[in-house]
Design a protein around this nucleic acid. Structure first.
Lengths: 225, 225
DNA sequence: AAGGTTTTCGACTAACAGTAGAAAACTCTG
DNA sequence: CAGAGTTTTCTACTGTTAGTCGAAAACCTT
């Protein structure tokens, strides 16, 4: 069993101003100085990878602002980084819209569909994270990690549209999420915008943590509707 | 960045005689001598984890019999194995029904719902693999990796039932898979069994490799039905 | 009060899953 | 060779869910 280094990396995504963006950090040193890379670092001796990525992200983003963190995949090509072998466990992290975490000066947000020059295999990791998010938005309640605690349906629609990359119908979004028991009315109303318009009812996601919502028929035990 | 060992492990699953079973290997040496564990081993210096697990499995099972291999998760609790730190990348492997690979004498198959005493965290890995398979059977074409190249609908029904743990309807299974474009008739017929019965038409899965079939509505671009 | 804006609601349609039962096509036995 | 038993296939019906559209509601500004 060979000795090698293990690092943890996270693609932290957030919907910011109508686009899905990733938090990147600009490398100061060679190799790949000037290129943008994912936050993360070496795995400590007394921590598992989940603990480690949360610890390392705490240096970049307030941990309490990370609504969801999950393993993405292991990236282990022998030449993925120059020099000694490093295997990486990659994560997907999500920050709810509306928050604007204080980030160090060498970090910034970039739309996942228009990334700058990235270091190593980090672009592939971001794209994988984007795809994972898009998939899970449809068959889990993961939207809770993109949305603020309380939101209007049309605001939620904007978030889903930005994350998925195409417009979704507010009517349908509300009905589908409601039928799955994921949406709960707060009873409150949002103030109308400057142009007027009917005030929006406010909602929140029910429950905490990710859960799978609605598998397909073949998969469903008989009579379980 | 700390130095530590990295191993790859695979939960190799197959439907055998009406139950979903896992391939386990009985440990000869301490620690955990006599307990059953997953095939795998240390990551080599010049290979990525996918290459490594396939290489190591080749010692237990003919590689050509593995219809599908995918990453499951990283298991990295500091105390998951006694002694020096070892991080594991776990895989799910699938062997089509009907094959009976030649396996070493110290390996055997066990139903995933009735595992023997297992070593380390390997039981959790097997259960995770089982759950991943069950989920993916519903929203991917992963059934192709459980089935022989050619099969009847009722044989496929047995496979799905065994893997999922409950009976599925043959009528519905056929319709759903057909509608998704995953099933293709070979034109041939199977010989009836000893008790007679109408001869079954034979099918195969279309395409090669895993693909996602049918996401949910919210996720679907408008007009894409 | 009128016109513009945004949200909400209801109604219609199409697609899909789940189920049941009849018909078809075979083997075996008397 | 007829009839009983077995297994597969087909068809039809039902209920659920998603996708779309448009009207109505509730606010703003002028």
């Amino acid at each position: 069993m060979s000795q090698l280094a293990h690092e943890v990396l996270a693609a932290v995504l957030q919907v910011r101003g109508n686009s899905l963006q990733a938090l990147l950090w600009q490398r100061a040193r060679e190799p790949h100085a000037g290129r943008w890379s994912l936050p993360g670092g070496g795995l400590g001796l007394a921590e598992d990878v989940e603990t480690s990525i949360r610890r390392q992200l705490a240096e970049k983003v307030d941990v309490r602002q990370l609504a969801h963190v999950e393993q993405l995949a292991v990236f282990s090509a022998p030449d993925r980084v120059p020099g000694p072998r490093v295997v990486a466990t990659a994560f997907l992290g999500l920050v709810p819209a509306g928050l604007d975490p204080v980030v160090p000066t060498d970090t910034d947000w970039f739309p996942v569909d228009a990334l700058p020059a990235t270091a190593f295999d980090h672009e592939a990791i971001v794209l994988r994270a984007r795809d994972r998010l898009r998939s899970k938005l449809s068959y889990t309640n993961l939207g809770f990690a993109l949305a603020p605690p309380v939101f209007s349906v049309s605001a939620l629609r904007e978030l889903y549209s930005a994350a998925l990359g195409y417009r979704v119908s507010a009517t349908n979004l509300q009905r589908v999420l409601s039928r799955r028991g994921l949406l709960e009315s707060t009873g409150d109303m949002a103030a109308p915008g400057p142009a007027g318009g009917r005030p929006a009812a406010l909602f929140r996601f029910t429950g905490h943590g990710m859960q799978i919502t609605d598998p397909f028929a073949v998969l469903r035990p008989p009579g379980s509707r």
